[in-house]
Computed example of a mutant assay.
Amino acid sequence: MKTPKRLEPLVQNGLVDEVLRQLMSGKEAVVYVVRCGDDVRCAKVYKEANQRSFKQNAAYQEGRKVRGSRDARAMEKGSRYGRKMAEEVWQTAEVDALHRLAAAGVRVPQPYNCFEGVLLMELVTDAAGHAAPRLNDVVLSPEVALKFHAMLIKQVVLMLCAGVIHGDLSEYNILVDADGPVIIDLPQAVDAAGNNSAFSMLERDVGNLATYFGQFAPELLNTDYAFEIWSHYEKGELHPDVVLTGRARRSEKKADVRGLMREIDSVKEEELNRRRFQLEED
């Protein structure tokens, strides 16, 4: 096929030898099958921000590392330079997450290179060597649904052990290769320790899995793996081989908001006193 304009720089720089075909077009990118020497890979071309249906809202941006205070201020103001930086951070987030998760043993595509807004990565294939289907396109028996759900809960645990939450996990961004589910599409991935919405995102990801697989295995609809996983994480007890039941008990005790505010005020006062002391010492 004719080389798309966004892929021309990769061809010119020898990173891609030939564009074979378009594989899919999603809410955030268009994916092509390309030839790189003797290897067949994927080229994920990120769409411009105004063309994406997935928005970079503050919940996903929180906790992400920015190179300097100038870049952070520009991104906050939404200037032309700031929008450019936001795009770089958005794309870099997926590359960083893929490397981090692959090293942790999570089933994700192997990333190879990111150049001019294009991510080169492994082409996930099925047993016949064809591009692997999305989970949404696979017919499941109750037994396979339970098996795949258990495998994906394991992957969610591995991800959190590596400090990452997918943030948009569903049947539409999971592929099925010869060995089972493979997780894709991670530009919205968040750092669990640095994002105040981390638990709600984990809860949504795990809830999406229960809802989808629950169509085939209804017993999954009554599970609560998210709270159980997060409880282990908060206690520092989460590890890859943790035994989960999906039956964690949530406390019905109301939060002590007044007590929490008192603690916050106490911390603020302590910080003010520390700063006063430093000024007096200077």
Results as ranks from 00 to 15, higher is better:
G63A: 04
A255V: 15
Q91A: 06
A132I: 09
A86E: 06
L101P: 08
L272T: 11
G68E: 09
A248M: 05
L244H: 00
G105Y: 09
K47C: 02
L175M: 07
H239E: 13
R276Y: 07
R70S: 10
M121I: 05
L140Y: 06
A248I: 10
F115R: 06
K44T: 07
E280Y: 06
E234P: 04
E252K: 15
C114N: 11
G129A: 13
A74Q: 12
V108H: 01
L160N: 02
Q56N: 15
V139Q: 14
P111C: 06
R67Q: 11
P181S: 01
A86V: 03
T92E: 11
E88D: 11
V30L: 04
L279G: 05
Q188N: 13
G117K: 05
V257E: 12
D256G: 09
L238N: 02
Q12I: 13
V157H: 02
V34A: 10
M75H: 02
G129V: 12
L123M: 15
L15W: 10
G246T: 07
E76T: 09
L135S: 07
L152H: 02
N113V: 12
G163L: 09
D241F: 02
R83H: 13
Q12T: 13
E48V: 04
N57E: 11
D224W: 04
R70T: 09
S251C: 11
Q278T: 05
D39F: 08
S231T: 15
S197I: 05
Q61A: 03
S141D: 14
Y32M: 03
L146H: 08
Q91S: 06
H166E: 02
L135G: 01
S266C: 12
N136S: 13
V164S: 06
Y172K: 14
D96V: 12
L98K: 04
H232C: 07
F213P: 00
G117D: 07
V242Q: 08
E219N: 14
K47E: 08
D17Q: 12
L101R: 05
D17P: 07
E270Y: 11
S69F: 12
R100Q: 10
Y46W: 10
K55Y: 06
V190D: 02
V144D: 11
